[in-house]
């Protein structure tokens, strides 16, 4: 059994707002092996974004610990690069400059200009965006922006890549293309990935394991399902794949079951 690269140990997260404490995460434990692709799925407001932000270091834990390679995560850092839902590219920089900002920060002190340039171009090439390198984010489509966001995250050569509903704002066709890109990248660079999604098919298609979260407040991991379908996976063949369909069925029934007990209490996103 491989040693986990990332482990979440009994994590509790509470938020305080106007004197009211809401318990968002309640005793969440999970260990992730190197190279593993984990999808986290759950209803809106169940705290899956909070969980990802804990790993990113953007949200502090109330109790418990998140460990990356046995070191406690205490703040954000490039070894846990995030692809944000709304791309978060800096609009005053070109596509090239957005990626270069990350590369420069991490390698600018030790590597030559030429090497930095190569790194930027390589990462843009991985997501097939070299043709638009001089465009600004305002001039490219939503799918393209998200590609650049992925390139920027990859350029940090993270130990864990965190995807926060990366395709949530995209139309179905673009979404499919980007899912293929992410699958291909995962196969090529053997990245460890944590992805949040609320799309069942997406969760199963990309993941080695799908983590299902119960509803908040006091959300925790309800169930984990292994996706055993062999890689590389092809979207249109998956509906004929028995193990894919059974995973899908399991997740859908989990979500439906929990849909009935949604409590309408204010929970910070």
């Amino acid at each position: 059994m491989q040693k986990p690269i990332l482990s979440l140990e009994n994590i509790y997260v509470d938020f305080e707002r106007d004197g009211v404490i809401s318990h968002v995460l309640d005793n969440v434990s999970l260990s992730v092996k190197a190279g593993e692709f984990i999808s986290i799925i759950g209803h809106s407001g169940c705290g899956k974004s909070t969980l990802l932000n804990v790993v990113a270091g953007l949200v502090p834990v109330t109790m418990g610990a998140a460990l990356l390679e046995n070191k406690e995560i205490t703040g954000p850092g490039p070894e846990r690069a995030v692809v944000f839902q709304n791309h978060s590219l800096l609009p005053w920089m070109t596509v090239y400059e957005n990626v270069k900002l990350a590369v420069n920060k991490l390698y600018g002190h030790t590597e030559s200009m030429k090497k930095v340039h190569e790194r930027v171009m390589n990462n843009l090439d991985l997501v097939k965006m070299t043709h638009a390198k001089d465009k600004r984010p305002g001039e490219i489509s939503g799918g393209m922006k998200q590609r650049v966001g992925i390139a920027r995250a990859l350029s940090m050569e993270p130990k864990v890549l965190l995807l926060d509903e990366p395709f949530g704002a995209l139309d179905a066709l673009t979404r499919g293309h980007l899912q293929d890109t992410v699958m291909e990248l995962h196969d090529r660079i053997k990245a460890t990935v944590l992805m949040i999604t609320h799309d069942v098919d997406e969760a199963v298609l990309l993941a080695d394991r799908v983590v299902m979260m119960s509803n908040g407040p006091k959300a925790t991991i309800g169930k984990i399902v292994d996706v055993t379908s062999p890689r590389p996976r092809v979207r249109r063949e998956l509906y004929d794949d028995r193990s894919f369909m059974s995973c899908r069925q399991e997740i859908v029934s989990f979500l439906e079951e929990h849909d009935r007990v949604v409590k309408f209490e204010p929970v910070p996103a």
Partner: peptide, 27 residues
């Protein structure tokens, strides 16, 4: 907040943050 998060993940130091993010965003 998105831009602040990007700066945090990249661990930009205050001078870099001032010129790369703060000034252009507040322009």
């Amino acid at each position: 907040q998105d831009y602040l998060n990007v700066a945090k993940v990249l661990r930009l130091h205050p001078v870099e943050f001032f010129f790369q993010i703060m000034l252009p965003a507040a322009t």
